[in-house]
Nucleic acid binder design. Structure first.
Lengths: 405, 405
DNA sequence: AGGGAGCGTGAATCTGTTC
DNA sequence: CGAACAGATTCACGCTCCC
């Protein structure tokens, strides 16, 4: 949990060897020009020099720092080097030399849509991130994504065999029925990541040049570290990596040569803002957080979600007796009674008539309540789909039969 | 319109200097293993060797051939070098050396989804194509694509100005309103190309290893050549480049060291088969047959949506008694009985045990059914939240009280 | 238009060879 | 004879065009 000022080449000497699980580097690019950017209110200008004598100089500069990085990286650790098109090939040669060709794991393509002034040629809509591990036994957490829309999931569930020509065939039993295989987990994450470029208007924007979206960093951190692991960013800039590490419960170390950057980083760490990108909310499931379940329930009711309200999660689009109809979904850490009380309290304040409570948890001592009279005749209590299924299974004996493998 | 047998290093000597508009190379990758593949009917096996003494040998091999290519390329011509992750960085260094860093135009990322997937780490779902021109005055035809659905059209149409710090800003009038610019043609083509990988079932397949989709080559040919121009492929393999050039009315020259390849290429040119990709033409959305309500219900159940099966809308992620649990949502144009029948039929075929039916419509004549015995003891019928609320209101009299305001 | 064939990738397992 | 290694073979897998 440190942020250090200085050249990482020197600062890395003070970090214990083999103590870091992930290093993410976003070094200055070889663009041969000065990067400048002002804060929104023009009060401050950040800048740093991106110019080098030659591409060989640049490569050596990076290589020296990569060597220092390798020292502090654990045997099971990984390094991610973020490049742009100008010099990605030279940087990768440097990585090959320091970490070894065999430890190359992936070239991650970060793609985004960007409105940019048209030049002759193709629009530049991606950047490259090279993923190397320190050894063969590197830590990796597979993230599973949904199947493609073109995939016949029904068929995915079928078991297969190989025939005499070693061609794969779907297995059928003696009656010609398909045979189903084990549970499937989904499709492992690809090396092409479609994550929106930081919107210039987004709150996340700090005004520091080359800032990367938190989502990109979160994904990297998730796949190669666990909670409590240590993340290092030797060119931390505005501190996106550290903010992401912090949000995910990882320890972090940041280094930068610029006092401005260090100051800004510390500020951001005190007050992290994550952009909730519209695109991500709609499309990409892998970023869904816990309360997405809630949102899904509200969506299936075609209800308007409400934020920051203890007793009400949403309202139906229709009114009943000229009053809005509030909906409350029981939270995992809430008893039924607590949920009910907070709904009734909130509804009364707004003088709503009809109210809906979605029950998501089974509670034995509730049997009393259900057989009793309803405490409010204009209350609808609905068991969630999930709960109904769980209850059915429970009442049919073996709950153990119903397991995620 | 020639197809030549032999090493391109020699064959290129016989081609007039500065006579070619586009060179596409798909040289053997540095995979260090033998590539082989059989034709569908097992009649023929194609193979070639992808192994090299060292990466330096490989790089020199390519560099020699790039030099020869440069000679025959027109001043306005371009070269596209197709690489995969194994050695793309060394190849690009070679390109820098032969054509000059300044003539680098784009790194094209060809991304696709592919069936095969078992790997510690991220799935390899892209290949790299380096686009260099011979000079600054290279030929280029801009292709415009539709604005992506997630793009904020408003922003694209806004006019922009540069302020005193040469920073780009959206132009506003004296009232602070944004000013709309001239009509735009669309978004110029990106450097990330999503083109389906040649599918195992595609008729276009020849059985030749590493065969590329015609669509990929067509896109390359379109952006840097006009009709009547000449396209050269020094490692033509199964001849995809030549077929694409032919289909687009360009002249072509192909070279390969393998007699099999030359023979196959000639055959294909006589009878070009191009697979039309429904996925590419219609987009992924076409496959998404579920409407938002259905998806919301499946989401709230944390179920996998099934896009392509009759009788089943999704599967729970957990198995019950080692069998998947299908979910069916009653459609607006479906009676309860129809929905039930199709679910039961589909479940039986897959020998599923537990099944879930979400009822979304009230039907009076169903009273019989509900009071009767369930037709299947392992069936759970759940009223949708919506239906429960509607039923409640109905039973409490005034439906007119329930209105959208 | 719903259902299914067939591929090639990378791992895990098996087999063979050497000391 | 056993261990260590290398090479060969087997295995599981999801995508999408075809019928």
């Amino acid at each position: 949990m440190t942020v250090l000022l200085g050249d990482c080449l020197e600062q890395l000497q003070n970090i214990p060897e083999e103590s870091v699980d992930l290093i993410y580097l976003d070094p200055p690019f070889f663009t041969q020009r000065k990067q400048k950017l002002k804060t929104r209110d023009n009060s401050k200008e950040y800048s740093f020099d991106d110019s080098w004598e030659s591409i060989e100089d640049y490569k050596q500069f990076i290589k020296d720092r990569l060597e220092a990085c390798k020292k502090v990286l654990k045997k099971t650790g990984s390094i991610f080097l973020h490049c742009d098109k100008s010099a990605s090939h030279y940087l990768r040669v440097a990585l090959d030399e320091v970490f070894g060709m065999n430890n190359f794991q992936s070239e991650i393509i970060w793609t985004y849509k960007r409105w940019s002034n048209s030049k002759k040629g193709l629009l530049n809509n991606h950047q490259n991130i090279y993923f190397y591990s320190k050894s063969k036994s590197f830590k990796f957490n597979t993230i599973y994504t949904d199947y493609s829309a073109t995939t016949n999931i029904d068929q995915i569930l079928q078991e297969r065999v190989r025939d005499e020509n070693s061609k794969s065939r779907y297995k059928v039993d003696e009656n010609g029925q398909v045979v189903l295989g084990k549970e499937k987990k989904g499709v492992p994450l690809s090396d092409v990541w479609n994550i929106p470029f930081l919107n210039p208007k987004a709150k996340e924007r700090t005004g520091y040049p080359t800032q990367k979206p938190i989502l990109l960093l979160e994904q990297i951190i998730k796949i190669v570290t666990d909670e409590g692991d240590t993340v290092l960013d030797p060119f931390c800039g505005s501190g996106t990596t550290l903010v992401a590490a912090d949000l995910l419960g990882r320890n972090y170390i940041g280094i930068d040569t610029s006092e401005d950057a260090i100051e800004l980083t510390k500020e951001r760490l005190n007050n992290p803002i994550k952009t909730s990108s519209h695109l991500l909310e709609k499309g990409e499931k892998e970023y869904l957080t816990k309360d997405e379940t809630e949102l899904a329930i509200l969506n299936s009711l075609n209800a308007l979600p409400v934020q920051r309200n203890k007793g009400i999660d949403g309202f139906l689009r229709e009114y009943y007796k000229e009053k809005p109809v509030p909906i409350k979904i029981q939270k995992p850490n809430e008893t039924f009674e607590e949920a009910l009380d907070s709904l009734l309290f909130a509804s009364q304040k707004r003088s709503c008539v009809l109210k809906v409570l979605i029950k998501t948890k089974h509670e034995d001592n509730l049997l009393d309540f259900i057989t009793q009279e309803q405490p409010d005749e204009n209350l609808i209590v609905i068991d969630s789909y999930d709960l109904i299924i769980k209850n059915w299974i429970k009442s049919h004996g073996n709950v153990e039969e119903f397991v995620t493998q």
